[in-house]
């Protein structure tokens, strides 16, 4: 829609600016807090301009023991844990969903629709609902305090299966028939044609799932007791409670800042594919 109405333009820009400010302000405060020393952060009013302790806080948070006087693992370790968990969840979900959607769309087997609905029903059972039995299973399998325990229960995914099913349904039947005449086996068709054609959808889903995995809080909290297995999101909450004296805002905010970087990096690097994946119809 191309319109030329100055007032409308001004108003819409104003609304956008207010929106950006609302979203950006907390991030700015986080950043500012990460650049001051501990003492300054406890004085009111809180500073609105950056101070000179950024590198010091950065080093202390990332490589040091973080919060003074606690048993928390260094933040780089938590970042690595979170990264491993988020990657395992997103890649695991994508591969399993691709394969199950492939089976459901392209193969005739008994109770095919039954299986589809069975998968679909799990939508109604997110981890929070089935948390006790899931914990029991993971504990019995001896997967507490491990990456497997962190990621596997979150991998089986109806949403992704459902989405890939829709994507596959939009691919014309002739594509399959053409490949059959060309002599492609089912797996060959899957690799050479389905995967490349779903490329943008895979990227979009990866972004969403990575952030989903990265932001997991309850589940990691439940199954990790070992400080070495802490993820960054749960650590922030722990840091708030851990210190017996007043919270060390500079370290906590630096941790928060570091915690934001990987998701932002994923979104930015996948942006083009992500947008294509959500909007593209050219098949």
């Amino acid at each position: 829609m191309v319109e030329n109405r100055p007032l409308l333009t001004v108003i819409s820009h104003l609304i956008l600016l207010v929106g950006i400010l609302l979203i950006a302000l907390p991030i700015w405060i986080t950043f500012v807090a990460a650049t001051h020393d501990e003492a300054r952060m406890l004085q009111a009013p809180i500073p609105m301009l950056p101070g000179g302790y950024f590198w010091e806080n950065f080093k202390r948070t990332l490589f040091g023991s973080g919060l003074s006087g606690t048993e928390i693992a260094p933040v780089w370790r938590m970042l690595a844990n979170s990264l491993a968990m988020a990657m395992m969840i997103s890649l695991g979900k994508i591969s399993i969903s691709l394969i199950s959607a492939f089976a459901i769309v392209y193969f005739k087997f008994p109770f095919r629709m039954g299986f589809f609905w069975l998968i679909f029903i799990t939508l109604m059972l997110p981890v929070e609902v089935r948390i006790m039995p899931t914990f029991q299973v993971v504990a019995n399998l001896g997967m507490l305090n491990s990456y497997w325990g962190l990621s596997i229960p979150l991998i089986a995914s109806a949403t992704a299966t459902f989405m890939f099913r829709q994507v596959f349904l939009t691919i014309p039947d002739e594509m399959l028939e053409s490949a059959r005449i060309d002599g492609a086996s089912p797996m060959r068709f899957f690799w050479d044609i389905l995967i490349p054609l779903s490329r943008t959808n895979i990227a979009a889903l990866f972004v969403i799932l990575f952030i989903y995995g990265w932001n997991q809080y309850l589940w990691p909290l439940l199954i990790t007791t070992d400080a070495d297995m802490t993820t960054i999101v749960m650590s922030i909450k722990q840091m708030l409670e851990a210190a017996e004296q007043s919270p060390q805002w500079n370290v906590i905010m630096m941790t928060a800042l570091l915690a934001m970087i990987p998701p932002v990096f994923v979104v930015i690097s996948m942006q083009k594919l992500f947008v294509q994946g959500l909007t593209e119809t050219d098949k």
Partner: peptide, 13 residues
């Protein structure tokens, strides 16, 4: 055999 389809069915990628 070889077949030519109405919508061509070329592999887009």
């Amino acid at each position: 055999i070889a077949m030519v389809f109405q919508n061509y069915a070329l592999y887009p990628h």
